[in-house]
């Protein structure tokens, strides 16, 4: 098993190297001088002196030749975990991102948990009793959940729970550690809206996976041995249906973050998604560079974890 984990870790290295090249190249691709993007065109028409230009270039790490800049970038990121300075607020990118991290962790963590629990439950219910009304309902939900824009469904939630019923606040962020009840009220709609896509995908995958497993001979054997339905369901059907679902869960990490850009904007939550949105508007490439790097790192980590869990659940994978 440790050999398998080591091999997977080694496979991730070239990917990390390419991520560093891509994020670095992104900033280099900015049309014109990235420096101009930093300071904006001179409004009063005055020209900056050559020393000023050099000074500003050094401040933002834009001095030196292309390979020099790349190696400096990699060195800073790997050795000091330093992504440079935000072009807009002039604060360190790492601090700006760290400030937004708790909101994103709460929102995405809860949404991931909810989509796994709800998706697995619904998929299992539908897969165990195919053709029933419950199954049809779940299938309908899965189809709509994939096809409907998440922000549109979120607006539907706002109309129902905020405008019509007045139960939940329309937007804003309250830290769950300071006021759990208020925080729950503020997070309920965003978490639910963000998890819908995941619920749909996981429910659909679980359902088809359960249907497939239920046809296997060992299920018949388990029943023939006289195991109760629930024992067969939990120990045999559920465990073996989990395999493809684990892969989907890994993929959900990336999808969740994408969804959070729009959900955080809609519900005015100050997380990483909102930061990415603001940075795009402000052309703050340093922040975007940091976010792309970090989020990709998390996704690679999640995929690695998924693979390892997969290897633990299914010995065949380890020996391939």
């Amino acid at each position: 098993m440790s050999k398998f984990i080591l091999a997977r870790l080694l496979q991730a290295l070239p990917v990390l190297f390419l991520v560093s090249i891509l994020t670095f190249a992104g900033l280099e691709l900015v049309p014109g001088d990235p420096l101009l993007a930093v300071i904006g065109p001179a409004q009063d028409g005055t020209q900056l002196s050559a020393e000023d230009v050099e000074r500003i270039k050094e401040q933002f790490g834009l001095h030196g030749s292309l390979p020099e800049r790349y190696f400096r970038y990699v060195e800073q990121v790997i050795l000091h975990f330093d992504f440079g300075t935000s072009l807009q607020s002039q604060e360190p990118v790492t601090r700006v991102i760290a400030d937004r991290m708790p909101v994103s962790l709460w929102l995405n963590g809860l949404a991931l948990g909810l989509s796994i629990v709800l998706g697995l439950t619904l998929g299992l219910l539908a897969g165990v009793r195919p053709g029933t009304r419950g199954d049809l309902g779940v299938t309908f939900l899965a189809v709509v959940g994939v096809a409907a824009p998440s922000f549109w469904l979120a607006i539907g939630l706002i109309i129902l729970f905020s405008v019509e019923l007045g139960w939940l606040p329309t937007s804003g962020w309250v830290n769950p550690t300071s006021d759990p009840w208020e925080a729950a009220k503020h997070l309920a709609m965003p978490v639910f809206a963000l998890s819908l896509g995941g619920v749909a995908v996981i429910a659909r995958q679980t359902r088809s996976s359960v249907l497939e497993i239920r046809r296997q001979d060992y299920i018949v054997t388990a029943r023939a041995k006289g195991l109760t339905s629930s024992a067969v369901l939990i120990r045999h059907v559920l465990k073996n249906s989990m395999l493809p679902v684990v892969t989907i869960m890994g993929l959900q990490f990336a999808a969740l973050f994408g969804g959070s850009v729009i959900i955080e904007r809609l519900f005015a939550l100050p997380g990483l998604g909102r930061l990415a949105f603001d940075a795009t508007l402000a052309h703050d490439f340093k922040i975007l560079q940091g976010i792309v790097f970090l989020v990709t790192l998390v996704v690679i980590g999640a995929n690695l974890l998924t693979d390892i869990v997969y290897g633990m659940l299914d010995p065949r994978i380890r020996y391939q």
Partner: peptide, 19 residues
């Protein structure tokens, strides 16, 4: 593989910010 690891919306935002 690397390209796939970058969440699509973030990638799209980065491209839109540049282009």
């Amino acid at each position: 593989d690397t390209w796939i690891s970058i969440p699509p919306i973030i990638l799209i935002l980065a491209i839109v910010a540049i282009a």
